[in-house]
């Protein structure tokens, strides 16, 4: 699946991209490859779906916004339809199918609590299903590292430090 070079690249870029004029060139130099090769590898990882995104991760809470985890029970017969209805809202940042009576778990990201609340109500209206909200009351830990633990990956991870 991942080549050792890709693992090194992912481990490095799971941390911060420098805020320099040519950040990819700077990271390439750290990793001992060329800027072009590094950008090409990133493109390839994105096109294969190994990465879902590359860029800034916004923590909207710091600007008065919030992320709200929420869940609903979608009937199996209309599961895909409900998923499409939920996903159609731009406020829905993530959505996962899970094995439980509550079988759809999504995160609403909004700039204000009122907008988040409105998005959740709209989901209830559009789907006709009750939504349970699980706003975070306290954050204990959010990992900043890539959970690569295979032998090769671990070595590469240490080598990249």
């Amino acid at each position: 699946m991942l080549s050792p070079d890709e693992v090194r690249l992912l481990t490095r870029l799971h941390g911060d991209l420098p805020l320099s004029d040519r950040p990819f060139a700077d990271v390439a130099e750290e990793l001992g490859c060329s800027e072009d090769v590094l950008i090409e590898r990133l493109r390839h990882l994105l096109s294969r779906g190994v990465l879902t995104r590359f860029g800034p991760l916004f923590q909207i809470e710091r600007a008065g916004g919030l992320f709200v985890l929420a869940a609903l029970t979608a009937p199996e017969a209309s599961y895909e339809q409900v998923a499409a209805q939920v996903n159609a809202l731009p406020e829905v940042a993530h959505n996962y199918r899970r094995e439980h009576a509550l079988n759809m778990w999504f995160v609403v990201a909004a700039q204000t609590p009122a907008l988040a609340e409105a998005a959740l109500r709209r989901i209830e209206a559009v789907t006709g299903l009750p939504v349970l909200a699980f706003p975070k009351e306290r954050e204990f830990f959010v990992e900043l590292r890539l959970p690569l633990q295979s032998g090769a990956a671990e070595e590469a991870g240490h080598a990249a430090r």
Partner: peptide
């Protein structure tokens, strides 16, 4: 972006992995 990083409005600038594709 530097100020947003300092303020924590940007958590980091980097790769967002798909856990499934990483095994």
């Amino acid at each position: 972006l530097g100020r947003m990083l300092e303020a924590g409005l940007v958590r980091r600038i980097g790769a967002v992995p798909n856990h499934y594709r990483l095994g």
